[in-house]
Simulated assay, not measured.
Amino acid sequence: MPQQTTEIRAASFADLDTRTFHDLLKLRIDVFVVEQNCPYPELDGRDVEPSTRHLWLTDGDAPLAYLRILADPDGAARIGRVAVAPKARGGGQAGRLMTAALDLVGNRPCVLEAQSHLVGFYARHGFAVSGPEYVEDGIPHTPMHRQLIDV
């Protein structure tokens, strides 16, 4: 898949059309619920919050990678639901999307709950482990944070 044909898009829930939101949810469910065999409440109410930003990488038809940025009550940005379609894995798409997300987050503190096998990936984007590993839905996770960057 040539990288030049893909583009990164960002939108609030109010700016998403029905088909796009459907396709983003399908990618999330395909990866987290079906592939990882983790039945959990994927629709948690946070997608529709006015401050939530949905970011995805598309080849024009369907999303190849996705993440969302939430606003935590303490002002930190929370990155979550990072998913890459199987056909797009191994080509740096998650890294492109994470870079775009951190550009959007800017200098705010940022947190995430990494699947533990991805700690190294997030560390390359400036995140550090911030707590002990725990198991959620049968998958080891590690809390991570990115400190405020002085400009």
Rank of each mutant, 00 (worst) to 15 (best):
L55G: 13
A77Q: 01
I69H: 11
P50Q: 04
G75R: 02
R46A: 14
D47Y: 04
T52D: 06
R53D: 07
R68H: 06
L67W: 08
G60I: 11
S51F: 10
P63I: 05
A65K: 14
D44V: 12
L55V: 09
D59V: 11
D59R: 10
D44F: 09
I69G: 08
T52A: 06
D72Q: 05
A76E: 00
H54Y: 10
A77I: 00
A77L: 02
D61N: 14
D72C: 03
L64G: 10
V48N: 02
V48G: 04
L64K: 09
D72T: 01
T58L: 10
D61L: 13
E42D: 14
P50S: 10
L64H: 09
D44A: 09
L57R: 08
T58I: 12
Y66T: 10
A65P: 14
G75N: 02
P63W: 04
H54E: 12
S51W: 07
G45F: 13
I69V: 15
G45T: 08
W56L: 12
T58W: 12
L70S: 01
L64F: 08
D72Y: 01
L67M: 14
E49F: 07
R46Q: 15
P73Q: 01
G45R: 05
D74S: 02
R78K: 04
L43P: 02
A65C: 15
G75I: 04
A76I: 03
V48C: 03
R68M: 03
E42W: 06
L55E: 11
H54W: 11
A77E: 01
P73R: 01
V48M: 10
A71G: 02
S51C: 05
P73F: 01
R78N: 00
L70A: 02
D47Q: 09
G60V: 12
A62M: 13
E42Q: 06
L57D: 07
L55Q: 11
D72W: 00
E42T: 08
H54L: 11
